[in-house]
């Protein structure tokens, strides 16, 4: 029987490699605990900044069988409120053996650091720097230049002893250089990738659907992009990668682990299959039985 237990580098011990991705039913303690009870290996909270944000007015999300397009606009109650929710989640999820990851963002490296410092008080296992949200008019986007990736990573590393994962965007040239910049600046992990910028238009209404006009695409159509990004990053850095983007089935998860991820983010999957953690875990186990891998790390493709 293959084992789904795995490690995210030397950072986290996981009972399975499936991690609730940031932004999906994760804005309070009850939701995070629910993710843990539903079978997540780890759960990530909704990204928060120091001051909080209202987010965009609906329509903020549309979906079809191939993809989801959203422009939530990072709604969150602020880092202090989130810290309190996280503290409760950390305590309860620990009983289930499920680490909690806190996600933060800001409009400057200093704001990232300040938010990290606040959520660190809740003692999450990892803090993710969301430097790649496509829905805030570039105000919080730091994922396109090695210098800005380093600046945010360094500021966060100086602000807290808790390990840092840097979440990268797909729509950039030379992703491996950006991942390397994060690693060189002290990042402990990479989360890849954020949603892909996109747009939806209603031809009868003759206008963009989302109030923000443009959004980020996730869901099945994102998988080939995320696989390629994770593959490329895994060949450029030694730190572990949480591979995220279009993971709906156990086969998708296996593919991501083969590409070079150490764990897998699961988000949009919950629209397609409510019980995603359990189903993906079962299917992943089946794939491993079929290909003869006894542990998650065996899945990785060796050149």
């Amino acid at each position: 029987m293959p084992s789904l237990e795995t490690n995210l580098g030397k950072l986290l011990k996981l009972k399975n490699p499936l991690i609730l991705a940031s932004g999906i039913n994760d804005s309070n303690a009850a939701s995070l605990i629910r993710g843990a009870k539903d079978g997540a290996g780890a759960v990530t909270s909704k990204s928060c900044n120091v001051k909080g944000r209202k987010g965009h007015d609906p329509p903020v999300l549309i979906s079809n069988e191939h993809y989801i397009l959203n422009a939530m606009g990072l709604p969150n109650p602020g880092a202090e409120k989130m810290r309190d929710e996280l503290a409760l989640a950390v305590k309860e999820c620990a009983k289930l053996g499920v680490p909690v990851i806190a996600s933060v963002f800001g409009e400057s490296a200093e704001e990232f650091a300040e938010a990290a410092q606040i959520v660190a008080e809740a003692k999450p296992a990892l803090i993710e720097a969301d430097i790649s949200c496509p829905n805030t008019m570039n105000k919080t986007f730091f994922s396109d230049k090695p210098e800005s990736v380093s600046a945010v990573t360094r500021a966060m590393k100086n602000a807290t002893k808790i390990p840092i994962s840097v979440k990268l965007a797909p729509n950039v040239p030379s992703l491996s250089l950006l991942a390397k910049a994060a690693e060189d600046a002290g990042a402990d992990c990479i989360t890849a990738i954020n949603t892909m910028p996109g747009m939806a238009i209603d031809p009868i209404a003759r206008r963009p659907i989302l109030t923000n006009k443009v959004g980020g695409m996730s869901g099945p159509a994102l998988k080939p992009i995320s696989l390629r990004c994770v593959y490329e990053i895994s060949r450029a850095v030694k730190i572990p990668i949480i591979g995220t983007g279009g993971i709906i089935t156990g086969s998708d998860a296996a593919e991501m682990l083969v590409a070079g991820a150490s764990a897998v983010g699961v988000g949009s999957a919950f629209y397609y299959r409510r019980n995603s953690f359990k189903l993906i875990a079962e299917e992943l186990e089946k794939v491993m039985k079929e290909n003869g891998c006894s542990k998650i790390s065996d899945l990785r493709f060796q050149e």
Binding site: N25, S27, A30, G55, L61, N70, M72
Partner: peptide, 20 residues
């Protein structure tokens, strides 16, 4: 309810999703 399909979490009550 913002997304209506069980992803955004704005309608969650004690971790349950009102929309779906």
């Amino acid at each position: 309810m913002k997304c209506g399909i069980g992803l955004c979490g704005s309608c969650s009550v004690d971790g349950k999703l009102c929309c779906c």
